[in-house]
């Protein structure tokens, strides 16, 4: 498995029509760092992820993943807002469709790590919503990524499931050491998972806060998460 790769974002300008979405936006993400990107809807968080993933190249400036342009860098693991599983492929098939070189046994092992042992041959339609999201995470890991991109992975699911998936994600982060860019609208998710929280606002979007969370993820209890969430939202002391 690849270890985390550094990411450099230095965008001169990105427009949607006449409106600049980003102007002079810069971010350096160290290898293995877990960065949570927070901001209001429409600020451009998902667009930024697509630029890092190399599927949006219509901008002035530079994005580098491991020192290369995103299109030339190794394929990132990408988890979308919805599970986006191919409904005609089994759980194993959904992993191998993005990486046919992945041995079946390895795919089964990954699904097992996601708590899906016994469901390797299940179709997405036979799985619950939470299980589908686990398959989506396993698919992201199937390409052995140095960079894991998570675009609002907990949107539209209940808090209990968010807790379960957060715990799973923490296991994945600790085990594989990927660089992670997590887009979320919920500061609590950021406080629970991230090493660093970046808040962007406005149009063109600018970084209004960039703070580190030094406490190890395993030591973050509910009180700490609540306090950190309050700090991120500006409701607590600095």
């Amino acid at each position: 498995m690849a270890s985390g790769v550094p990411v450099r974002i230095d965008i001169s300008e990105k427009r949607f029509g006449d409106t600049p979405l980003f102007r002079d936006l810069g971010l350096e993400i160290a290898g293995g760092e877990v960065l949570a990107l927070i901001g209001p809807s429409g600020v451009g968080k998902s667009t930024l992820l697509r630029m890092v993933a190399g599927i949006d190249t219509d901008f002035d400036g530079l994005v580098e993943v491991d020192g290369k342009s995103p299109e030339r860098a190794p394929v990132p693991g990408f988890v979308f807002q919805d599970p986006r599983l191919l409904p005609w492929e089994t759980a194993t098939g959904n992993l191998r469709v993005v990486n046919p070189e992945l041995p079946v046994a390895e795919a089964h092992k990954l699904l097992g790590e996601m708590g899906l042992a016994g469901y390797e041959d299940a179709l997405p339609g036979q799985l619950s919503g939470g299980m589908q999201r686990r398959v989506a995470l396993a698919r992201a890991l199937a390409v052995a990524p140095g960079l894991l991109i998570l675009d609002e992975p907990f949107v539209s699911i209940d808090r209990k499931l968010v807790r379960e998936l957060s715990a799973l994600l923490i296991e994945v982060i600790e085990r594989y050491g990927h660089t992670v860019i997590l887009v979320t609208h919920d500061p609590e998710d950021a406080a629970r998972l991230a090493d660093r929280v970046v808040v962007i606002e406005g149009r063109p979007a600018t970084v209004v806060e960039d703070r580190r969370i030094t406490l190890a993820r395993s030591e973050r209890d509910d009180a700490m998460v609540a306090a950190e969430t309050a700090r991120i939202t500006g409701e607590g002391g600095a």
Partner: peptide, 11 residues
């Protein structure tokens, strides 16, 4: 959405 998935994973 599936098209985007395929592009992201460079299928």
């Amino acid at each position: 959405g599936y098209g985007e998935l395929a592009r992201v994973y460079r299928v």
